[in-house]
Nucleic acid binder design. Structure first.
Lengths: 106, 106
DNA sequence: CAGTATCCACGCCGATACTG
DNA sequence: CAGTATCGGCGTGGATACTG
């Protein structure tokens, strides 16, 4: 009979929530998948997000290997395109699962 | 051609993250499912959580219909038992999906 | 266009002491 | 045993002005 001792800091779920949780990441994931893949397009689609926060979220998601930041033109006016990695795309099934669950239990 | 405008405050994912996210809720869900269903047993299993936070999380999860708080003895020394609702149990498949995803993409 | 730089509010989470 | 009450740190998210 072993004792179960749990620390949330070492929970596998913590990684998932860090990568997809927060206020905006699941929305960003959804939008980029819909080819809303430019900084200004994302700003237009999320009228209540700030530039700082959008930049932050995109950078973190890049770090987590969910998306790639593609700089097409490096001088002003810059052109940057975002697209999902396979890892980022693979989240869709999980998100769809969550949506289905929501439909069923509400 | 319609314009897509998104506000995280009305996102279906926000509900899911509120119900299962945060630092402890997925752990609590897991533990109660393992019949670690008393306040003090949960405290023992999560040595780094505080009483206030555990109480908070349990109350929120009760509000969200994920678990039921069963007061067996209302006078000190009290006896309270927690158990999952069907809605709470149903989260297991989603959590398992997340764990599988994690195994595959790490 | 796609960001930085600052400053700031709020809420999550935690430590500790006390209680029916 | 199963909580409340109180105080406080810290991180997330936001408003606004500025820039290569």
């Amino acid at each position: 009979m072993e004792k179960i001792v749990y620390d949330a800091n070492f929970c596998i779920m913590t990684d998932f929530f860090r990568m997809t949780g927060g206020k905006w990441k699941s929305v960003i994931l959804y939008l980029i998948r819909k080819d809303i893949n430019r900084f200004s397009l994302l700003m237009d689609a999320m009228p209540t997000i700030s530039k700082k926060v959008l930049t932050q979220q995109l950078r973190e998601m890049e770090q987590d290997g969910l998306l790639i930041r593609d700089v097409l033109v490096a001088k002003a006016p810059m052109v940057v395109v975002y697209h999902l990695t396979d890892k980022g795309k693979s989240l869709r099934q999980l998100i769809d699962g969550i949506i289905e669950w929501n439909k069923h239990y509400f």
